[in-house]
Design a protein around this nucleic acid. Structure first.
Lengths: 243, 243
DNA sequence: CAGTGGTCTAGACCACAGC
DNA sequence: CTGTGGTCTAGACCACTGG
């Protein structure tokens, strides 16, 4: 196959191979595969489509990014289930750790504030803060991890000793407001381990600021698996879910 | 921590090269580069770090995903400015096209509903619907495009003729609620063109359902550039933005 | 152990921007 | 035209999972 056989001036738009591959695979996924089914291995697929493995992988990368596929080293590539919806509405004005909070506490430490947290809380960089680590599981799968940084509470002598104490200290203050932001990021080694992904996997980074006593009293950095999660918010008054 | 059977051979941690590269580049970016500055070209960088260009590109891909870099074919790689915050709060309960709506109308058509839209609106797949195309510009850059699908309004004979009419028809109904969801996607060719990116670029896909008359009356599919955008929502009562 | 996906190399050519 | 990033190849080896 000499490239660009280009009989006549042909090749008008020149659509990349990996893009055509992705389209072909998407169609095949819709038509011939069911959730959980394992695909042929990459070398076989590449041969079948007549491309190099790197090119095929470019197409698979995209499909994994879109949540259509799930790849596991040593195991294989499987068809992914639809993304799970996770409610992140700031509407229910409650502190973390409230009654029906689905997050589970995972650890506690006193550590230096990362720059972004220090900035949000208005403290110098590296200030020692109580940090609560939490995790969220949905449908049997870990979907998010969180680090919650609290401003040292004024009332107990100083310093809380564990996660429950830290959360209780927050709850003693009236919550005046909260806001969130969502952006794309990539998992560091630690997050990747907790989320059962490889480092560098795409994640949705949700930053929450909790307001109390006229200032930001706590900041949470939550990391959601971008391949398996769909974040929802707003009043969901309309029941239209069945297929 | 991990085992690494003390084989005495070199590579104890086995951290991928592209990961180390990414770290090194991140540090260099923080220390020695300013926003807008152009980096050396990929071949030069690869040689400087002693790796293949493909490996270097793996590191650059990650940094671009995280919004640290911006690459343009034929031009070069530049240091990206911080992401712009875009408010997507569903709190201001208004229809699209209200007074201070920053979106600009871009086009109008009557077209078949894609499956996801048909499902949300509860109509058969392919049903012809009025579609308003809009675009959002922030800080001089296109950051998002949108397709707004409306249920045909009952009152005018049938069918609206242009975008203004379609939006006006929506505004005549009382808005009862709205919810949104955010997930990761990749830009198709058309969206990529409008957003000044290549097809397949990572985007944040925001789906909005507008409720009126006890059912979903309109659905919007908005596509935000994931590299340049940070979506915000919630009451932002706390002014803490300066560096 | 064999088989999977993950990393890496050293090339090549293509598409586009700008001179 | 030159120089940039984007695509593609045909290999190789590594890290992990499972029988």
């Amino acid at each position: 196959m000499t490239r660009r056989t280009a009989s006549r001036r042909g090749t008008p738009p020149a659509e990349p191979k990996y893009w055509q591959l992705k389209t072909a695979l998407t169609d095949a996924l819709d038509a011939e595969f069911s959730v959980g089914q394992v695909l042929p291995d990459e070398r076989t697929l590449a041969a079948r489509f007549g491309v190099a493995r790197a090119t095929l992988r470019q197409a698979l990368d995209q499909l994994e990014l879109e949540g259509r596929l799930q790849r596991r080293r040593g195991v294989g590539t499987t068809v992914a289930p639809p993304r799970v919806g996770v409610d992140v509405s700031p509407a229910r004005q409650t502190w973390p750790g409230a009654e029906d909070d689905p997050w589970s506490v995972d650890g506690f430490a006193v550590a230096g504030a990362p720059p972004v947290v220090a900035h949000a809380l208005g403290v110098p960089r590296g200030t020692a803060l109580p940090v609560v680590s939490r995790a969220l599981v949905a449908e049997g799968q870990p979907v998010a991890v969180e680090r919650l940084y609290a401003l040292p509470s004024p009332e107990p002598a100083d310093g809380v000793a564990d996660a429950d104490e830290a959360l209780a200290a927050l709850r003693r203050q009236p919550l005046e407001g909260q806001d969130r932001s969502v952006e794309l990021g990539s998992a560091d080694a630690e997050q990747a381990g907790a989320l059962d992904r490889l480092p560098g996997s795409p994640v949705l980074l949700v930053t929450t600021r909790y307001g109390a006593a006229g200032r930001v009293a706590a900041v949470s950095l939550a990391t959601y698996r971008a391949d398996t999660c769909r974040l929802t918010f707003g009043d969901q008054p309309l029941a239209l879910t069945a297929s």
